[in-house]
Amino acid sequence: EITKAQRALMKVIVDAYNRHKIPQDVAKKLLQDQYSAEENFLLLTEMATSQVQVLVEFTKNIPGFLSLNHEDQIALLKGSAVEAMFLRSAQVFSQKMPNGHTEVLEERIRKSGISEEFMTPMFNFYKSIGELHMIEEEQALLTAITILTPDRPFVKDQQAVERLQEPMLEVLRKLCVLQHPQEPQYFARLLGRLTELRTLNHYHAEMLTSWRMN
């Protein structure tokens, strides 16, 4: 059973997750048609910047985060920005969007000069997230858990981060049992996505280098 305190924690995270989203005007640009590869590149750069700002605003609401050592806050955000960005965009991709929008988005990304060998793992990840049909609470908690990963580079006080991540994992585990009684492996599958996210991190670094070159 989820305790009252755990329910309150979950509510704080979900409210912050819903409050901090990419501004509508920025997101709308993604759906305007006819952009050249260069314009797509600039648009995706603007989207990435906006997602990082949204990520920081969301993260400030995670109980205990702002009381962490300041440099550790930077290390956690820097270490998780790419993963949190892919987690969030995966959820955008798997939402029921008006017909055609997903295709327009996919087309835009395919035509932005990103190499194929990076595209495939990214869209595979979007598909595997979509198949999980996560509810909002699961998405918000998984994002918070991704950010509070203790073993990011340059994090000095890993125990302090673990003390923040632990209660999140516990609430998410209970939530998965309640939400998916017929799927005992569901929680494990969610955590499996975090491992997949880490490989995307590696691809993303390579993708940026190749993007800069062409």
Binding site: L42, T45, T49, V52, Q53, V56, E57, I74, K78, A81
Partner: peptide, 21 residues
């Protein structure tokens, strides 16, 4: 605008709370 700042700059700026480009 923020979009040509590095990742860490954007994070530091956002953490300090001033978001204007």
């Amino acid at each position: 605008p923020a979009s040509n700042l590095g990742l860490e700059d954007i994070i530091r700026k956002a953490l300090m709370g001033n978001l204007e480009e």
